[in-house]
Design a protein around this nucleic acid. Structure first.
Lengths: 334, 334
DNA sequence: GAACCGAATGTAATCGTTTACATCGACGAG
DNA sequence: CTCGTCGATGTAAACGATTACATTCGGTTC
């Protein structure tokens, strides 16, 4: 009953379990005739092998874990979608987990994954400072690749957006629109990409003659909620800047909602930019100018990196940054 | 090296593996002293047990699979989030898969899950007509619970929105706004909930004196793309109805985008309603009146149903529909 | 004090695979 | 004719846990 075992197939085909295993894995020398017979009985009985037993014996599950801060953030949704596409073509199953942006949950998930559920892990660490320890521990047991965000002080492969280039692109675009003074709404407390984007925005700003005063930098989190709050504060300071640069689309969307509520026109009174190019960037009014993340490439590269590690090839640690593309929309129209 | 096995702990504590197993599982009679000693050495060695081996022996993995059509649709994202919360508290791991709204992919995923990766499955079948076969097959091997959508012709537990009530609520709301003629934009070709919502909308309409002519029913898919297309067709027919009822927020968002593009004002020229209450329902302009799905309850109930099945309790098949709540926003303001 | 009981622990079978090693012929070389 | 080789297959030992069954031993009971 239930699922047939390799023993059932062996008995039915009149051979030993070893022969069945060899015939089905296709690898080793089995005579053509028996191989055919075994395959035939296997399909006839509906035998497909017990992945658990196989995993125990081979010490490899054929699964990889993907651990992201959240699936409510559309950026991660897109990323996971792309990753899955690649995994499927490689016959790998994807074990998706979320850390809810909490490094304790993240550590627990990593621990559980490394205890044998998966062969390798793709992770976007939620906290640059505090994710490191758990990642390092995981790394000692399994191949790990970081994507999008990264943790400080650990030597682990990483793939993500070229934040410096992205911010420079945005700044140049704004400069070409005649922007002289800008505000920055960001999240750099815990998040590696946020921190980098903030730094690079300021740097590129000074280079292109755009002032980004320190009282015009609003530091919170990557959420629409923080966007509206920051916009409220910014407006209450009076003296609106020429542009508001947001280091993520979610923030930008929140900012634009609040500006609209207060009757401040975009792009008439102030320009707004985001980063990511999530689907709702075109839903809001006006559509948001942003830098599109090379999500497909990030996913492909990360999967590739992990795959080579899974094959056991030792290589030096790689940090790969991929270039985004500016998508000009109405929120920065002249 | 690597992960310590139960044998290592046994040797270190000077007992047999059986005693270690018993001491750690806490269940059977082991003297207090040895139990303490075993637990102590286990934590000292960092022993945590090999889930694969345990799964093989106990014939249970402690994982459940969740299979949804897509994670790009925010409704499913919310649902998965809620499910995960409940699973975590029960010490169950969640194996998330997507069918990409393709019943072949769905069947493949189901097959792979039932081959031993999980103990039970929560699934939202992508195709009412064609998902049934694969579900029935899965059902013979594992407990299965459907949520949100359901497949025709199979006897499998289901939990989801009370579609009849939801549509009635919307119709009543519109009637109270003086609506006499309405259009319906929906997706009933393959999707169970779409089909039900369409039928109930028409039924409730006639009951409350709202005309829903058959040339005012636009049948496509649950996406913003279909929303914009339907709106285009609807407008080109001339003679705008009083309200456009959409059977899902994604459609409604598409409809509203197209209306805005054509300079048709909501709610001034026509009212629009959605269904789900996804996060962007408040992002668009004007915010969308919709029926909020009881996502938390759906998740809790589905998990509970599956849990009792996992415990091996036989019960009659249940179809549980939960009531949504009307959320009035500007898209239907007077 | 023999017989018995039950609590604590050990021994070994088991879950379903894969795979190292053993076996068995057939065949070619000497 | 014998031996070595090699290809096809079988036997059995892993993998790391759980658990049925066996064992031991101190304490009752008559």
């Amino acid at each position: 009953m239930s699922t047939p075992t390799i023993g059932d197939v062996a008995r039915e085909a009149g051979v030993s379990t070893a022969t069945v295993s060899r015939a089905l894995s296709g690898s080793l020398r089995v005579s053509g005739a028996t191989a055919r017979r075994v395959r035939e009985t296997a399909t006839r009985l509906g035998y497909s092998g017990n992945p658990i037993a196989r995993a125990l014996r081979k010490n490899a599950t054929g699964n990889v874990g993907v651990l992201v801060p959240s699936v409510s953030n559309p950026f991660f949704t897109m990323l996971v979608d792309e990753i899955e596409k690649h995994m499927v073509t490689m016959g790998i199953n994807l074990y998706l987990c979320t850390s809810r942006d909490d490094h304790d949950v993240e550590a627990a998930r990593l621990a559980s994954l490394t205890q044998g559920s998966v062969d390798g892990i793709l992770v976007s660490p939620c906290d640059a400072a505090r994710s490191g320890a758990a990642l390092a521990a995981a790394q000692t047991k399994l191949p790990v690749v970081q994507l999008d965000r990264s943790a400080d002080g650990v030597d682990i492969d990483w793939v993500g957006l070229d934040d410096a280039d992205a911010m420079r692109t945005i700044i140049e675009h704004l400069a070409s629109r005649g922007v002289k003074r800008a505000a920055l709404v960001t999240s750099s407390a815990r998040n590696s990409s946020g921190r980098l984007r903030t730094a690079f925005a300021v740097a590129a700003g000074t280079q292109h003659g755009i002032t980004l005063d320190s009282d015009q930098i609003f530091d919170g989190e990557f959420s629409t909620g923080w966007g509206t709050e920051a916009a409220t504060r910014l407006v209450s300071q009076g003296d609106l800047p020429d542009a508001i640069i947001c280091t993520d689309d979610q923030i930008a969307i929140g900012v634009m909602q609040e500006l609209k509520r207060q009757g401040i026109r975009v792009p008439g009174d102030v320009l707004v930019t985001g980063l990511d190019d999530v689907p709702h960037a075109t839903l809001i009014d006006p559509p948001l100018t942003t830098v599109r993340q090379p999500v497909g490439d990030i996913a492909a590269t990360a999967v590739d990196l992990l795959a080579t590690k899974l094959r056991g090839e030792e290589r030096s640690i790689r940090k790969i940054s991929l270039q985004g593309t500016l998508v000009e929309r109405e929120s920065t129209a002249n």
